[in-house]
Amino acid sequence: MPQLFGNKRLIFLLVSIVILVMLIGFSLRSRDELTWPEQFVKDTAGFVQLLFGKPAQEIAGFFENVNDLRRTYKENELLKARLEEYAALETEVEALRQENERLRALLDKKESLRDFVPIQATVIGRNPDRWRETIIVNKGAQHGVKKDMAVITPAGLVGKVQHASQFTSTVQLLSALDQNNRISAYVQGKENVFGLIEGYDEKRRELLLGEIPIDAKVEKKQKVLTSGLGGVFPKGLPIGEVTEVKPDQYGLTKVVYVKPFANLYDIDDVMIVKRTIDAALQEEGKAK
């Protein structure tokens, strides 16, 4: 049997392992920005992916449409029923919006934490090895995307921007949330209860909302929204619905299980949310 590695090659292998460990260490540091070669590689790869991915998505989309057609009748009935409800709701929302504007004008308060500009983006790739659930979208720093911005679908929050390169950016999905990336949120009720989205329970497929005071009143079916405190998330993006409330392991705070509104896996088009108040504050800062 011939020798697998010669002497020189063995040394080369060992040196490579040392470099590997160093590189992993380098990439594990919490980085605010990717280095420019990484950004360049990412953008180029994103372009190639778009080139190949678009036709593939079209074909897959066609089969999905055929599938949808079979369910159309049932869905249509359901939607008709909801439509009347919607009309009533819309008039109410319009009235409330006008009132809100009027009151704001009275207070001379123009920007709110709620206002945001959506940046439309399309998913052009996914991490195939899925150790960390991320998607790549086709909008980057050139379009105004910044690290830590919220990413939503019409149903609700799905993730946050992990890194933005010039023309593409990587989105970390809520299902891959770790301790370092908590999201400030609140439970909507008579008295809002604030907490932090701390992680994802894979078995139940639900988010964990922690740091809630033990005497706070949280009930099932209540809605959970982003609070807009800290970071660059706007206020009031829908996250999910409370399914269970439990005391945490030390009995000092409560843990709330939240079922996300959005499907955290099946994502095609997303909106990256840019808070308007930040731009306004920046301009004010410049003016001064």
Binding site: L4, L13, S16, I17, I19, L20, M22, L23, I24, F26, S27, L28, L34, E38, V41, K42, A45, G46, G125, N127, P128, D129, W131, R132, T134, I136, Q162, H163, T170
Partner: peptide, 24 residues
Amino acid sequence: FLYDCVYTELLGVYAFAYTLIAYL
């Protein structure tokens, strides 16, 4: 290396493995 850069953002892991596997 492309895989590391574009997908996992954990540099070196796949570059090392793919090279070694190609050698083997």
